[in-house]
Amino acid sequence: MILTYGESDKGLVRKVNEDAINLSVENLYLLADGMGGYDGGQIASTLAVKSAGRFLKDTPVLTEQLLKESFYCANRAILNEKVDQPELKSMGTTMVAAAACEGKLLWAHVGDSRLYRFQDGKLEQVTVDHSFVMELVTEGKLSLAEMRVHPRKNEITRAVGIEEDMKVDSGSFALEDGTFILLCTDGVSGMVEDSDLESLIASSPRKTKEDLKELGRRIMDKVYEAGARDNASFILIQFWN
């Protein structure tokens, strides 16, 4: 059994919501965080999740490679849109995708939107942010705590729709009974500490769709308590045997 719930909110500061989610294809979960001005960000994120979803819609068996190819399709769609609307030349988007197939979770991502796995009481960030500050962390020049308050924490080093030659990170892992997946934009991960997300998930029942909606409400409450300075979006996925 798979339970799913997603939500996208503009927060308290931004005038528009530049995030987008797509749950229209069974067992496929897409989330994006646009950039490039109000119109550009909205267009880029929406184009990305819709293009990737269309590419994978009629695929009988999803694979990690096909998931990556859906990102290339989204990349082309945004680049083509820039040709038609040159005033949107600065737009681009992060994107993270997950797909459940034959007992595994396939994932792919570009940018700093994240995929987390919660199993046996522990929350683990599976994806690695493509960001300026994460590079500093990797080099040992910055701690994770310092990363959260760094003035350049929102600078990403990789995005969909910027260059023809785009690199996509991907992977897969086995799904176990009780595996819980969180996809989110940095409007969630940047507002709520991983330890708080872990506590929220651990303390929440996740047996029904209503349970996931309640967990989503609790996560969004935490985002708002922290100031909701960015658009905040998430997808919750619960797997039970």
Rank of each mutant, 00 (worst) to 15 (best):
L3I: 08
L3D: 04
L3G: 11
Y5P: 10
S8N: 03
S8G: 04
G11M: 05
V13T: 08
R14H: 08
K15P: 15
N17S: 01
E18M: 03
E18N: 03
D19F: 01
N22I: 02
V25R: 08
V25E: 11
V25G: 04
E26I: 05
L28I: 12
L30F: 05
L31F: 09
D33G: 05
D33C: 09
G34P: 10
G34I: 04
G37H: 04
G37D: 06
G37W: 03
Q42S: 08
I43Q: 12
I43M: 13
V49D: 08
K50H: 14
K50I: 11
S51I: 08
F55E: 07
F55H: 13
L56K: 03
D58Y: 15
T59D: 04
Q65I: 11
Q65R: 14
F71D: 07
F71S: 06
Y72P: 01
R76N: 13
I78N: 00
N80A: 14
N80W: 04
N80F: 06
E81N: 05
K82T: 12
V83K: 15
D84R: 15
D84P: 00
P86W: 11
L88H: 07
K89D: 12
K89R: 13
G92S: 15
M95F: 09
A97E: 10
A98S: 11
A100H: 14
G103K: 02
G103R: 06
A108F: 07
A108P: 04
A108R: 07
A108L: 08
D112N: 03
D112E: 06
R114K: 11
R114W: 00
L115N: 09
L115E: 05
L115A: 08
L115M: 14
L123R: 02
L123W: 00
E124Q: 13
M134R: 10
E135K: 11
T138D: 11
E139Y: 01
S143R: 10
M147Q: 15
V149R: 14
V149M: 10
H150I: 12
P151H: 05
P151E: 10
R152T: 05
I156D: 11
I156Y: 10
I156T: 07
T157D: 05
A159V: 06
V160R: 13
G161D: 01
E163C: 13
M166A: 10
M166K: 09
K167Q: 12
V168K: 03
A174D: 15
L175P: 00
L175K: 03
D177M: 06
G178N: 10
T179V: 04
T179C: 09
F180M: 12
G187W: 00
M191P: 08
V192K: 00
V192P: 02
D194A: 13
S195V: 07
D196R: 14
L200I: 09
S204C: 05
S204Y: 06
S204L: 02
P205M: 01
R206E: 00
R206I: 07
T208R: 07
E210W: 01
D211S: 04
D211P: 05
K213F: 09
E214M: 15
E214H: 13
G216K: 03
G216W: 04
R217P: 02
R217H: 15
R218H: 09
I219D: 08
D221N: 13
Y224V: 03
Y224K: 14
Y224A: 03
G227F: 01
G227H: 02
G227Y: 02
D230G: 08
D230A: 01
N231L: 09
S233R: 02
L236S: 06
F239P: 00
